[in-house]
């Protein structure tokens, strides 16, 4: 499977954005994150920024970006439409929550908004995941690992960013490091589980079922319709050689998981201003790793 780069960027960036937003909103609502003007601004800018980059990328990837507004109309049937709708809805709610948090009114009227933001973020990520998980023809996506993976990756990449931000602002959130650690581990477990599933299962559709010729015997392709590649082949016929695939997996393991884990450890050990460096590196590396992983 070889979705366009813009789609990959979209899922990774917006996933991290929503993960960050979700964690921040939850922590804020539960009082773990102090109301600090700069902190709020940075978190909101970073999360919505990541989300927006992702959305812009995916809009840019459209054949007709100027008609993108139409994409929210089919929420009754289309996960993509739902995703768009929730993504759009998240903005005002998140901004309202941020405003409230900034002002930090004593009545804490913004707390429900924070919860709503968190919910919207989760739902949006779920919708994104469902876009892929609902595609029956694509075995790699249409399985029960995809939704947990998307959620897990959003959370873990968001958490890494939050940890980095926390360290920049020197916030006393000692457990966050541990939470990050746990989230990386969960994400890793999900990823390994996913890989195992992919390696050990086969698509339900086979050359025999795709042609209905199984009764004659084994079915082998002879000639494709056209000798040069067409849109479908370029977009979907992309098959990575096994050797290459294993190499890519190692890259993913290194960047998405090993480096962040090491970063966590380093952050923990270093403390002080230097600890931000591994934290930022960990977040950046995770993004990179996830980009490779979506490839």
């Amino acid at each position: 499977m070889h979705p366009a780069l813009s789609v990959i960027v979209f899922t990774v960036a917006s996933g991290a954005g929503y993960g960050l937003l979700l964690l921040a909103a939850l922590l804020a609502a539960s009082g773990f994150l102090p109301a600090d003007a700069w902190l709020t601004v940075v978190i909101i800018l970073l999360s919505l920024g990541l989300v927006s980059i992702g959305l812009l990328c995916s809009t840019w990837h459209l054949g007709h970006p100027e008609r993108a507004w139409r994409a929210v109309s089919q929420w009754r049937s289309s996960w993509l439409s739902r995703e768009g709708l929730f993504a759009l809805l998240t903005y005002p709610v998140a901004l309202a929550f941020a405003a409230g948090w900034l002002c930090d009114g004593a009545d804490e009227w913004w707390r429900p908004l924070a919860l709503a933001t968190a919910l919207l973020a989760v739902v949006t990520v779920l919708c994104t995941a469902m876009i892929y998980a609902s595609l029956k023809p694509v075995h790699q996506w249409h399985n029960r690992w995809v939704v947990p993976c998307y959620l897990g990756f959003a959370l873990f990449s968001g958490a890494l960013w939050l940890d980095a931000v926390r360290l920049v602002f020197r916030l006393p959130l000692p457990h966050l490091n541990g939470v990050c650690f746990a989230l990386v581990a969960i994400a890793l477990a999900l990823k390994l589980g996913y890989w195992h599933f992919i390696d050990t299962s086969r698509s339900r559709a086979t050359p025999e079922s795709a042609t209905g010729l199984g009764a004659i015997g084994q079915v082998r392709p002879l000639d494709p319709p056209h000798t040069e590649e067409n849109y479908l082949l370029k977009e979907m016929g992309y098959r990575i050689a096994r050797k290459h695939r294993l190499k890519l997996r190692r890259v993913v393991l290194a960047f998405a998981f090993a480096v962040p884990l090491a970063g966590m450890v380093a952050t923990h050990l270093l403390a002080g201003p230097w600890s931000t460096v591994p934290a930022v590196l960990a977040a950046a590396s995770a993004m990179l790793g996830l980009l490779v992983e979506r490839w």
Binding site: P65, A68, L135
Partner: peptide, 20 residues
């Protein structure tokens, strides 16, 4: 109305969608 998101082409198992 088509925005050219290509999602339908991924949803078609028969390769019947053609993106212009």
């Amino acid at each position: 109305k088509c925005i050219g998101c290509k999602l339908c082409s991924w949803a078609c198992p028969y390769g019947a969608r053609e993106f212009d």
